[in-house]
Nucleic acid binder design. Structure first.
Lengths: 226, 226
DNA sequence: CGGCAGTTTGATCCCGGTCAAAATATGTGG
DNA sequence: CCACATATTTTGACCGGGATCAAACTGCCG
C-alpha cells in the first residue's frame, strides 16, 4: 500500500508523507464484489472507511422491505463516518455499487486522527457539508418536482460524480439498473423504463442492460428544469 | 444576560462558568417577531446562531418561488452552523416560526470556540448528526409513503420536538398554518385541510386557526405506519 | 438450450393536484 | 364598536400523472 495513493485525497492533502504512512499502517484494506454490504443500518459503528476505488451506494430499507438510495459515494471519499457525527450506529447501509476497494480504521482512532492531523477534521466536515447540501436538494426535488425531472437530475448527478467520457457521450461508470434509478428517485422501475425508452428515441441517452450513457447532457438539464 | 441560561444546553454543558461568561461576552442577542428572516439561503455565512427561545424554520425556495421546509429547530439548539461544515454561504434560509430570541457570534470565533472549549465540537457535531438522520428519514418517507402518512409523521415530529401538554392533548407550541404543513410534506394546503378536517371528525386532532393539537398521538402513529 | 435477471409495453385505476368559490377568522381604522 | 380588508380554512368538481397489475420479451450465464 503506497502513500502516494492517499496524498492527493482531500482528507490527507495537508499531511506529510510520514503522517500518511502512520495512518496507512493502522488501516485494513479490503476488496469486495458488486452488491456486497459493507455495513448495515443500525450496526454498531465500529469502523470508518475510505473508498479507494469503485462506488458505494448508501441506502435505507423501509419497514416493508423497500430500498431507498440516499446517496452515492465516489472513489476518494470517506464513508461510514458515524463517529464524526457522534453516532454509535450507522444511520444507513453501505452497499458496493461496483467492485470496490476500500480502507478502514477502528473508530477508536478517529479522535487521534482529528487531534494529530491538521486539516483532517476540516476536510472531513467539508464533505459532510456537501452531503447535507445534496440531501437538502433531494428533499426539495422530491417535494416539488415531477418524476421526469427527478430522474433527469438523478442521471446528471451520477454522471457528474462518476461519469466516464466515451464516444457516444458520458457513461455512468458502474452497473446500474432501472430498479436502481427508481430507488434513487422514489418511483417504479416501470416508469423509469418508459422514460428511458422515450429519451433513447430522442437521442438523449443510450442504454444497454445495466448501463446508461448520457448523450445530450444539455437537453437533460433543460428537462430537469433550469 | 445570565450564564445560567446557557449552562444546561448541550454545546456548553461541559464548560466552566467563566468560560460561558467569556462566550456570552462575545455574543450579540436579538429578538424577532414571527415571520422574520434571520438569514437567507446563499448569504455569506458571517455569523452562527444559538436559539434561546421560540422555533426556527429552515427552508429553501425553488426557482419558481415555492417554499420547501426542510427542518424545524427548537429552542436550545445551534443553527446557521455553516462554518462547522466548511461552507461559506448558508445552504438554506432561517425564518422565525414564532417570536424568537437568539444569540449570534461572528464565524471568526468558531475555530477558537472549538479549540478552547472541550466538548463544544463534539456536541455540535452530534446535533449535525441528528439532523442528517432526520433528513435521511424525510427522504425515505417522501420516496415511499403516501401523503396521509407523511402528514401524520410530520405532526408527530413537531409534537415531539416542541409540543406542550394541554387538557385536550399535545399542542404544537408555535403558530402553524395548513400551508406550513404542506410545505413540510410536499403537498398542497388543500390536501392538508381535507385531512385535518377528517382527523378532527375522528377526534385524532383538534385545530383552530394557526393552531394544531394532537389528541390521540397513538392512533396518529398507526396512521403514519409503524 | 433452459432459466434467470433485467427490460419493455399495454391496460387500468386512483390518489392527490388543480381550479373555483364560499365560509370563517383576524385585524384595522374611523 | 362596527364595517371593511385581508388571511386562513373549508369544500366541491374534475382530471391527469404515475402506480399497479399483467404479460411478453431480451439478453446473458451455466
Amino acid at each position: 500500500m503506497d502513500e502516494s495513493l492517499l496524498a492527493p485525497l482531500p482528507p490527507f492533502s495537508l499531511l506529510k508523507r510520514e503522517q500518511i504512512r502512520a495512518i496507512l499502517d493502522h488501516a485494513v484494506s479490503r476488496r469486495a464484489d458488486v452488491g456486497i454490504t459493507v455495513f448495515n443500518e443500525g450496526d454498531a459503528a465500529e469502523r470508518f472507511f475510505l473508498l479507494l476505488d469503485g462506488t458505494i451506494r448508501v441506502a435505507k430499507v423501509t419497514p416493508d422491505g423497500e430500498q431507498v438510495t440516499s446517496l452515492h459515494i465516489p472513489a476518494g471519499q470517506l464513508f461510514g463516518i458515524a463517529p464524526a457525527l457522534g453516532r454509535d450506529a450507522y444511520p444507513a447501509s453501505a452497499i458496493s455499487a461496483s467492485e470496490v476497494l476500500f480502507l478502514s480504521w477502528p473508530v477508536s482512532l478517529w479522535h487521534s486522527f482529528i487531534a494529530d492531523y491538521p486539516g483532517f477534521a476540516t476536510e472531513t466536515y467539508k464533505t459532510v457539508g456537501e452531503r447535507v447540501a445534496e440531501m437538502n436538494t433531494r428533499i426539495m426535488e422530491m417535494s416539488t418536482q415531477h418524476v421526469e425531472q427527478r430522474i433527469a437530475r438523478a442521471l446528471l448527478r451520477l454522471v457528474k460524480q462518476s461519469g466516464k467520457r466515451t464516444d457516444e457521450g458520458i457513461e455512468i461508470s458502474f452497473p446500474i439498473t432501472r430498479q436502481d434509478v427508481s430507488e434513487m428517485t422514489g418511483t417504479t422501475l416501470h416508469t423509469v423504463s418508459r422514460l428511458l425508452s422515450a429519451w433513447e428515441k430522442d437521442g438523449l441517452v443510450s442504454s444497454k442492460r445495466k448501463k446508461i450513457v448520457v448523450c445530450d447532457a444539455h437537453r437533460l438539464v433543460v428537462l430537469g428544469g433550469a
